[in-house]
Amino acid sequence: MIATRLRPMAIQARRIYVELMFQVMGRALQGISEVDKTAQDEARHLPDGFLFEMLVRPKGPRLVVEHLGNGRLRYVGTGSPRPVDLSIQFKHIAHAYLVVSFQEKTSVAFANDRMLVDGDIGYAVRMTRILNRLEAFILPKLIAKRAVKEYPNNLKLPEKALSAARIYLKVATHFFDTARAS
């Protein structure tokens, strides 16, 4: 009896968590593209105006990021100004929760058929590399090793701490800018 009452609350809590993480990830993608040369080099291979979205099907949380050119990404929000070029879609909120709570690697979720990719696979690989780089920077090493396919061997603590601080500062700045504009 209690379990049937708690189940909808657990689903709602997961949805709220995934929604919040998508907002953080979108802003963090913008932030890493402003501070990290490796992420910029990956993003430079995307066409200018390229739109990337990550969403939960059927009508769940969503994030949209645009490539402005020269390796810079901009978090657009939850709506897209035009059709997206690449969409990574989780089939269920529980699947998205496993990935964004770092219980399951993105590659494992894809292998387990928990997500779909709609668009050029080469661009999906690039965006996944940027996301992995971001996670390696902003997550503690123990968690990042569980979240990314391969943790960078050359990422030392001073670079990680400095980059993480700069990315988190960018995320906070983007949150404040959004709040001020509203």
Rank of each mutant, 00 (worst) to 15 (best):
A111H: 02
F110A: 07
A144S: 09
R62P: 03
N112A: 15
R15H: 13
I11D: 11
T4K: 09
R74T: 06
F90S: 10
P158M: 11
L29G: 02
F176K: 08
H45E: 14
V100F: 13
A109D: 08
H95S: 15
G77M: 04
H95P: 06
V84F: 01
F22D: 07
I167K: 00
R27P: 02
T173A: 14
I138M: 07
D36T: 12
A147N: 02
R133Q: 13
P58F: 02
H174R: 11
N70H: 04
E135M: 12
R7Y: 10
T178S: 15
A124C: 09
Y75G: 04
T4N: 05
H45Y: 04
H174W: 04
L68V: 05
I32G: 04
P83S: 14
V24K: 00
T38S: 12
K141R: 10
D48N: 10
F50V: 07
R5P: 00
Y123V: 06
V18L: 09
F52G: 10
K105Q: 10
D36W: 08
N154W: 09
S163Y: 06
H67P: 01
V65C: 03
R57W: 00
T78I: 12
A165S: 09
P140Y: 01
V24W: 00
I2H: 01
R180T: 11
A3W: 01
T178D: 15
